[in-house]
Amino acid sequence: MNWLENFVRPKLQALVSRDHSDSAENKWRSCPNCAQMLFLNDLPKNLYLCQQCGHHLRMPAPARLESIFDSGFTNLPEVAVVEDPLKFRDKKRYLDRLKDSRAKMKCQDAVQSAFGTIAGEKAVAAVFDFRFMGGSMGSAAGSALVQAANKALSEQCGLIVFTSSGGARMQEGIISLMQLPRSIIATEMLQQAGLPYIVVLCDPTTGGVSASFAMLGDIHIAEPGATIGFAGRRVIEQTVRETLPEGFQQAEDLIDKGVIDMIVPREDIAARLGLLLHLMGGKARLLTENDDSSDHDDAAHNHSEDDGSGVEKSAPVVS
C-alpha cells in the first residue's frame, strides 16, 4: 500500500467509472471510498467489502446475521409496537414512509435479531440496518433491543449489538427520545445478570443511539472507517465555525480518544466475538499454541497471525 495505490489509482478509477455509476440496470454500485464498480450479486459473498480498497460498505441486517452466526441460527420474531404515536407527517406521512421501507426491505423496522452460536459461543445478536430509515431508533428498535436482552437472559448468554444509525427517529418525537433510557435499561438487565454485552459500532453510529446503549458495552468494537460520535459533522461545523480535521469521529481516531477497545475488520469479526465471549465466560480452554504435537492441519496458521486472535479453531468461513 502506498500513495499511488491509495490515492492516485482510486481517483483515476473514479474518473473513468463515474459515467457508469447510474447505469447497468442497477446491478452495480460504486464504492463510496474508491469509486470502484462493485457487482451487487458479489457483495454478500464478499461481506460487503470493496474488493479494491477494502472499504466496509454498510451491510444489510440479514447478511450481517448470516455472516456472524454459525449455521442454524434462529431469527427472533419482530415485536409489535403502537405505530405512529404522533400521527406525524412532514412532506410525507410517517405511516407511508414506514410502508415504503417495509415493502422495499421486507422487514418491519430497523433492527433484526437472532439467536444462535457465534464461533461456537451461544449469543443473541441485534443488528441495525441503515437502509431502514437511516437505522433510526423508534419504539420498534427499542423494543427489539429489550427483546434481545430478555432472550439473552433466558438463554444465559451474551448480547451483541451491531449499530448503524443516525440516531433517534424524529417522526416518533418524544417517544423516540424515551428509547434512550429504555435501551439503557435493556443493557442494565445484562449488567445485573453478569452476562456479556458487546457493541460493534458500524458506520454510522451517532445521535441518540451513540448517547445510549451503544456507549455502554462491556467491550466496544468498531468497524474500520466507521463514523462514531454524538453530534453530526455539519452541526459541529456550524457551531465552531471551522472545518473539522480529517479523520474526525472516525474509528481510527476514536481508538486514540479512548472511546473504543479495538477495530476489527469484518472478515475477522465472528471469530473475535467468539473469543471475547469465551473469555468473558471465564472457562478454561485448551489452546493449540501450547500443543507442541500440533496434529491439526489448520492449527499452524494461527501462529503466524499477528492480530492476537489466537483462536483454537480457524475462523469460520463466512459466505
Binding site: L180, P181, I184, I185, E188, T206, S210, A211, S212, F213, A214, M215, L216, I228, G229, F230, A231, G232, V235, I236, T239, V240, L244, F248, Q249, K257, G258, V259
Partner: peptide, 26 residues
C-alpha cells in the same frame, strides 16, 4: 441540548450522556 463542539466530541459526549442516563435509572 448537549454542546455540539469538537472538544465535547473528543472527550466522549455520547458516552457521558449515556452514563448520566444510566445513573438516573439506577
Amino acid at each position: 441540548g448537549a454542546y455540539p463542539g469538537l472538544d465535547a466530541e473528543a472527550r466522549g459526549q455520547a458516552e457521558a450522556i449515556a452514563r448520566s442516563i444510566q445513573a438516573c435509572i439506577r
